[in-house]
């Protein structure tokens, strides 16, 4: 049975951008700042496409929740090889991982999905929660921080990164997977594929279509700059370095 894959794509501030906190401490500056697909999600999309190329998967649905601008990242996923996309327009409310997990759970049921591929974490909120929350809601097995994935008959053979090394798991299907950096090297979308992607469908939904009531929870009270380190000194040579380290008792 070929798999129907759902893959999550979040639009985030580009990983190379130095983030600035807003003066009103209500968030970070996002206007005029370069955004792109969360790097871990690119890896998830790439893995889905590779599974389709190996005829392990039949269909790939890309999902994003956010503003209309999130269509860009869905177009990127489509250009990489996803078949269709779903955009959940969340207006101005910042959905939390549990909201996203609930939306995904509904899509999994509606679309008869049997494998969900997500990034290990979004590089903006750094939560790393959607995959375990979703697998819990669905009562499916989970494997987080996966660096190797193979379908073997009716199960998945997984290698995941844990503290101190690797762990090998055997997961029954259906399952939820979160992808680590070393799973693969995402491809660049070629121009013909970018053109083709424009014809692929992006279905727009509202959170309530998926049974999720997004309300401004007001759970984030404020966002602040981290404590700044004081500028240090330069030393001229190794001797001075060692002397200074001795002076402050570090060696």
């Amino acid at each position: 049975m070929a798999l129907r894959i759902l893959v999550g794509c979040k639009r985030v501030i580009d990983y190379a951008v130095k983030v600035r906190v807003r003066p009103d401490k209500a968030g970070v500056v996002t206007e005029g700042v370069k955004h792109s697909m969360n790097p871990f999600d690119e890896i998830a999309v790439e893995e889905a496409v590779r599974l389709k190329e190996k005829k392990v998967a039949s269909d790939i649905i890309a999902f994003s929740c956010g503003s209309q601008a999130s269509k860009e990242v869905l177009r990127t996923a489509l250009a990489m090889g996803a078949d269709q996309a779903i955009l959940v327009d969340s207006d101005k409310v910042q959905p939390e991982p549990l909201d996203i997990a609930r939306m995904l759970a509904k899509i999994v049921q509606d679309e008869k999905i049997n494998l969900v591929l997500l990034g290990k974490q979004a590089i903006d909120d750094d939560s790393g929660q959607v995959a375990p929350l979703l697998s819990s809601l669905l009562n499916w097995p989970q494997a987080l921080c996966v660096s190797k994935l193979e379908k073997n008959g009716d199960h998945l053979d997984i290698t995941r990164e844990i503290d101190g090394g690797l762990e090998m798991l055997k997961l029954s299907l259906p399952a939820v997977i979160s992808c680590d950096l070393r799973l693969n090297e995402p491809r660049y979308a070629t121009l013909p594929n970018i053109m083709k992607a424009k014809k692929k469908p992006i279905v727009e939904k509202k959170p309530k279509d998926l049974g999720v009531e997004l309300e401004s929870m007001g759970t984030v009270e404020r966002i602040e700059d981290p404590p700044q380190r004081e500028g240090g000194t330069r030393v001229k040579d190794v001797d001075e370095l060692l002397a200074k380290l001795k002076e402050i008792g570090r060696i």
Partner: peptide, 16 residues
């Protein structure tokens, strides 16, 4: 308190 954006900002989160 929890760091976000790879530690570039600190979030104060009130759980309800």
């Amino acid at each position: 308190l929890r760091p976000i954006y790879g530690g570039q900002a600190i979030q104060t989160y009130k759980s309800k």
